[in-house]
């Protein structure tokens, strides 16, 4: 069996399920809001957050923030990358270069302060070999699914990548 048929067997299979290293917390929320000067009172005013959203929530676009590993951690020898399936495809298909051509985020249940999220990666498709301006390679679609501690879906990020050789 060659690499491509082995990889196609992974389509639809959840991989790299992992829990975030820390709870959703306000420090990163406020630092993110400050970085873009976002004064939305939903994230700054506790009373309004209670009225509108039933409590303090995180801006939806922060989904991936809760999964980036610490720069350093004691005893760590290897870390799973946020989009490990993408790097697996590059390696197994011997495609040294890659670009992301599009990124879609869909938001479901609000992410709340104190949530501990879990993520998993699902390969959705791999194209036949294509010739583009960049080089010869394949397109692939990967979903990164996020759920909270109650196993409620909070969001899905979908990436289309193109791995190629020049």
């Amino acid at each position: 069996m060659n690499n491509i048929s082995e990889l196609k067997e992974l389509i639809g299979v959840a991989q790299y399920r992992q829990q975030g290293e820390f709870d959703v917390e306000r420090g990163y929320i406020w630092t993110t809001l400050a970085s873009v000067e976002n004064g939305n009172p939903l994230y700054w005013d506790n009373e309004l957050a209670r009225e509108l959203a039933g409590g303090n929530i995180a801006p939806p676009t922060m989904l991936s923030v809760w999964f980036r590993p610490h720069y350093w951690a004691p005893g760590r020898v290897q870390q799973v990358l946020p989009l490990q399936v993408h790097f697996d495809l590059k390696e197994k298909l011997n495609l040294p270069e890659a670009v992301m051509t599009s990124n879609t985020m869909v938001f479901y249940e609000p992410v709340r302060i104190g949530d501990r999220l879990t993520t998993q990666q699902v390969l959705r498709s791999i194209s036949d070999e294509k010739q583009t301006k960049l080089g010869t390679g394949r397109f692939w679609d990967i979903d990164v699914e996020y759920e909270n501690q109650n196993r409620e879906l909070v969001g899905v990020e979908s990436y289309t990548g193109f791995g190629y050789r020049k």
Binding site: T32, L33, S35, V36, N38, N40, L48, T61, F107
Partner: peptide, 21 residues
Amino acid sequence: AWFERYITDWSGPKGRLGRMK
């Protein structure tokens, strides 16, 4: 995060993002 800020500056806090590409 910049796009989100731009959108909710316009919508107000009740605006709830469903999807962004």
